[in-house]
Design a protein around this nucleic acid. Structure first.
Lengths: 147, 147
DNA sequence: CCGGATCCGTTTCGATACTG
DNA sequence: CAGTATCGAAACGGATCCGG
């Protein structure tokens, strides 16, 4: 992998850690909670603050508020007034957020293969054997606007 | 789960999460440094403690030692005596570690698409258009034992 | 030198209480 | 419902020290 080594090299580590894409990506989603929020939006149909709050993993409300703010600032989610109930807010993935689907899919495949998870083997198998089709389905569901 | 009894250790939310594969994966690699270490092993040919330490992103030595220990405990890396110099140690990816390659590739693609990175478009294009071939190359390089 | 371990000030996290 | 405020606990980071 000599070719890959060239552009991964970092020389300026001053302000931003480096221009390496992995480093940059982890600056915005490389914490314990951000990708779980994206997962809830993408696969679990969660939309509201309380949806995330009671999502099972038990994120604290202050941390959740902070992460939603950062994900918003990073252009991964947007906060909108609920069209069906103007008193409420809904969070929604942007195109940049939905584009994280392949990352999540690979995480699922990796974890299901090497760790003890409760992922249904049928779903994981579909992700592996029909990866492009699965991702297309995620994209279509997002375009349709349902969960 | 709060009032289970005062003699019972209060179980923190951070420790035991759900069985969701993404949640499980992020428990082991969902921090700011672990995936960068895997990247250094996979693409930059880094092997030793000092390689990682001076990798540009500037991890502190105590944090690095902690992460290497955890990655070892998670079966993602192994620590071995250097075959060429018995005074030194080398870290190496396990099969479980090299299996993270698709995750890293998707992170590169995502970041290159939406963030300002210094990844050469040619390499990213290759990752996208010839994804399986690229991953096969990573696997082969790992099997051959070079970086 | 290499591969950490230890100490310590600073930052972030997490749990709960509270508010508009 | 959708967050803040508060405060102790934990993690981080930098510097230094240490055994081999």
């Amino acid at each position: 992998m000599a070719e890959a080594g060239i552009w991964m090299e970092s020389t300026s580590n001053r302000e931003r850690r480096s221009g390496c894409p992995i480093s940059i990506a982890l600056e915005t989603i490389g914490d314990a909670w951000s990708l779980l929020i994206v997962r809830d939006l993408m696969f679990k149909g969660h939309k509201t603050f309380n949806d995330f709050l009671s999502a099972g993993e038990g994120i604290a409300s202050n941390i959740l508020a902070d992460r939603l703010r950062k994900l918003d600032a990073a252009g991964i989610v947007v906060k909108q007034v609920d069209a069906e109930d103007a008193r409420r807010f809904v969070y929604r993935l942007t195109d940049r957020g939905i584009a994280l689907a392949p990352v999540l899919v690979e995480l699922v495949i990796w974890a299901a293969r090497f760790e003890d998870t409760d992922a249904p083997p049928a779903v994981v198998g579909e992700m592996e054997s029909n990866r492009d089709g699965f991702l297309a389905g995620v994209w279509e569901a997002w375009v349709r606007g349902d969960s």
